[in-house]
Structure formats: structure tokens, C-alpha cells
Design a binder for these strands. Structure first.
Lengths: 144, 144
DNA sequence: TATATTTGCTTGCAATTTGCAAGTGCAAAT
DNA sequence: ATTTGCACTTGCAAATTGCAAGCAAATATA
């Protein structure tokens, strides 16, 4: 299949052509929930993705308009990646995936209180998460 | 990475280990929305997936308990695949993916009325879809 | 009864993608 | 001037994918 050929006009197929793989949504997770912003931070995720794959996925997501990239003002040798509005609109997808995964994975690290809020208080939770992104105070910021 | 090794205890990673690829959710889509039930029907989806991949994905989904398989009573040479409750619980994920995909794909085939119902009438829509599965009357049954 | 067809896979093989390790190039810090 | 940090890039082996064909068992047709 040629690279720029869509498989069908199904909205699921369209979406999966962008993030249907084992890594893309983890990059988005790291951005949205943990506040990661640089290449090096993504490369050091728990799942340790190969850097060539990371570079590839960042460019796919950027081309799709889900994330954007700009030079760091403080440290010019560095790029800052961030989610666009189009990317933030994937938050409901992520939350539903978390809900399902946490329900069926007995070893999940997802806090019960968080999963309960996805089930019972989703709208407010989403607002808080989006606020968190904009203020650079993500919900699950790593303990420094 | 060994086949039975999880990457982390993140619920998203857990989920993607099961359906994080370009095909698995399309199989689920065909089951849930179109009412496909046999190997041959899946093999003839719009996206024309290779049959070796299809066989592989069906077995992954079955092992994960998302779908189940049994002999057709009417035609014993045939197997009937169907979603389990665990699979039906992926419906919210599918609906959110459809919502996002339909929003950003100008060529989408998703009917506007359907997407509007995902946005404004999701609970009732879900009940109807689940009813449809159980009564063998899927929402987007193909015109025969 | 013999033959053909349907159904659900499996196999062989080439092409693509992945994963790992190492290397590169640039900017800033020392 | 040299080292360090960062964002990739490259080489290569291994795994996965896609395509076409093959196969075996259960019907359907002659």
C-alpha cells in the first residue's frame, strides 16, 4: 500500500491510519498526563521506545496536526513538542481506553480514584486535564 | 520483545498490546456496526485485509476475551465470531474514535446524524447499538 | 456416487517495519 | 578548546506484513 493512500473513508480507519499502532497514543499520554515535552523525555518513557520509531511517530503526529513542534526559547538546542487542539480532542479516546484497560488489567497502575472520575465525573475531569496542559501542571506530573 | 511480555502496567499500554494496530478495531467495527460474523465476511471488508493477518488478529482478540468463536449450528463448515461483553465495553472507545475521525476527515462516510448522536445522545445510542448486536440487527447492516 | 464449491484457514516468499546499538551534528556550558 | 546535552540518523538483524497460492473438511450439485 502506498504511504499516502487511505484504505477507506471510514472514520475509524482514518483515525487508525494516524495513531493505530503501539506507540503514538503513548506519546500523547506522556504529553497530556505527564507533561513531557522533549524528545529525550519521550525516549525515556517506561516502555522505552526505540528512538528511530519515536522520530517517525513524532513526524506522523506532527504532519497530522495532532502535535506541534517549536524551538525552546530558553535552550535553543532543544525543541518543545506540544499537543494541538486537534490532539487535545483525542483526550476522550484516551480516557475510554484507560477506563477499559484499567477495568481488565489486574496489575494496572491507574489510580482507582482517577478511573472512577472517568466513569462518574468525566466532563469536569476533562476540563481539569485541559487546564493542566495549558498551565503546564499535568495531572500525573512525575515526582522530581 | 518477547510475545508475552507487557511493556508496562499503564492501562493504555495494556490496551494497545491487545488492539493497538491498524486492523483489530476494524474487525470489531465490522462485528458491532455491520453485523459481520464469519471469517469470509471480515476478509471482504472495504479495507481488504490479508487473510493471514485476519487469522492472527482473530486469535489475539479471542485470547484476550474480546471476541468468541463457535461452530455455526446451521452450517457446520462455518464458524461464527461474536463480541463478548468485554468486547462490547470497547464501544465507547470506538465511538470516540469515530467522533474524532469524522470531525477531521472531510471525506468521511460517517452520517452526520450518527456523529451528532455520539455527541448529544451517547447513552441512548449505545443502548440501541448493544440491543442491535443482541438482536442481530446492527445499526449499519449492509443493503442486501 | 463423483465432482465442484464454499469456508476457514496455512504456507511461501518478498517487501516493509521494527528494535537495538552506535554514530552524527549542532549549540551551549566549562 | 573541549566536553556535554540534545535531537535525531544510520546500519543492520529480526520480526511483521502483504500478496498469492494451496489445502482440508464440509456441503452443494450433477
Amino acid at each position: 500500500m502506498p504511504k499516502n493512500c487511505r484504505r477507506s473513508d471510514c472514520p475509524i480507519s482514518f483515525s487508525l491510519d494516524i495513531f493505530g499502532d503501539k506507540w503514538s497514543l503513548l506519546i500523547l499520554r506522556d504529553m497530556i498526563f505527564i507533561g513531557k515535552r522533549t524528545y529525550g523525555e519521550f525516549a525515556n518513557s517506561d516502555e522505552k521506545m526505540a528512538t528511530n520509531i519515536l522520530a517517525d511517530r513524532l513526524s506522523v503526529l506532527e504532519n497530522a496536526g495532532v502535535i506541534k513542534k517549536k524551538k525552546d526559547k530558553e535552550k535553543k538546542s532543544r525543541f518543545i513538542y506540544s499537543v494541538t487542539d486537534k490532539g487535545i480532542e483525542l483526550l476522550p479516546v484516551l480516557l475510554e481506553i484507560i477506563k477499559w484497560g484499567a477495568t481488565y488489567d489486574k496489575d494496572t497502575v491507574a489510580p482507582k480514584a482517577f478511573v472512577d472520575r472517568i466513569k462518574n465525573d468525566k466532563e469536569k475531569l476533562m476540563k481539569e486535564i485541559i487546564e493542566g496542559i495549558k498551565n503546564n501542571k499535568p495531572l500525573f506530573a512525575p515526582i522530581p
